[in-house]
């Protein structure tokens, strides 16, 4: 009986130990692989058409794969703004899309169409602000976005016309392809100069940015 208990305990520990070793090895492998990809394949992370915020001379490209309908992206947004003002001129935010929710594509199309009126960031903030209402899980009402848009002074009719352009369709498709290639399966996913975060979380993002800024 005693031997059996030892056998089971030993097996359990071995399995759990192997599990954590694999986690470590896998993460190391992923970080290495993507770091390599960043050099070889910068454009997978940063496309010419992607919306960018911040100085052209910024040392850090902060690439965020986001979804206007994702709550965590909404929660993270103020922190990103804070990071950017803390390190003014050093961070360039690049927005990529990973539309994972039901109405994400619809929202992304509106967002992209707002660029023609130079209201991109205002629209993004508006979408995040009202997200709990239009993007509610139980009763999503994307049509409500039309009612919010006048608040920031955009021409709604023009958006309705512009949002169905094939260019926007292609852009979303390319972003989805790039997201797949980079292994983005959740939003928001951040890459700091092409390196993924060690773990998801604001602290990890801050650490990664400070690490890149250190020299």
């Amino acid at each position: 009986m005693k031997n059996r208990k030892i056998l089971v305990l030993f097996s359990a520990f071995t399995l759990i130990f192997l599990f954590f070793i694999s986690v470590k090895l896998y993460k190391k492998y992923e970080i290495k692989r993507l770091g390599f990809l960043a050099k070889e394949n910068f454009s997978t992370f940063v496309r010419n058409y992607s919306p960018k915020l911040g100085s052209d001379h910024a040392k850090i490209y902060l690439i965020e794969f986001l979804d206007p309908e994702c709550e965590s992206c909404r929660d993270f947004y103020p922190y990103i703004k804070q990071l950017m003002s803390e390190h003014e001129g050093k961070i360039k935010l690049v927005v990529r899309y990973a539309p994972l929710h039901e109405n994400s594509k619809f929202a992304v199309k509106i967002l992209e169409a707002s660029r023609n009126q130079n209201k991109y960031w205002e629209t993004l903030e508006l979408l995040f602000r009202y997200q709990p209402i239009w993007g509610s899980h139980h009763n999503p009402r994307p049509d409500l976005i039309w009612a919010y848009l006048p608040e920031i002074g955009v021409d709604v009719e023009k958006i309705k016309k512009d949002m169905n352009s094939s260019q926007i369709e292609l852009l979303i498709e390319q972003d989805i392809n790039d997201a797949n290639e980079l292994g983005v399966k959740k939003t928001p996913t951040f890459f700091v100069n092409g390196t993924p975060l060690k773990q998801f979380g604001f602290q990890y993002l801050q650490d990664a940015i400070e690490y890149e800024l250190r020299d």
């Binding site: 089971v8 097996s11 993460k27 292994g183």
Partner: peptide, 22 residues
């Protein structure tokens, strides 16, 4: 006991696929 081992490996393996490899 062998069954338990198999089930444990399958459980940890599936958690690895979903939680670690996403």
């Amino acid at each position: 006991f062998t069954c338990w081992l198999l089930a444990s490996i399958a459980t940890l393996g599936s958690l690895f696929f979903s939680e670690i490899m996403n």
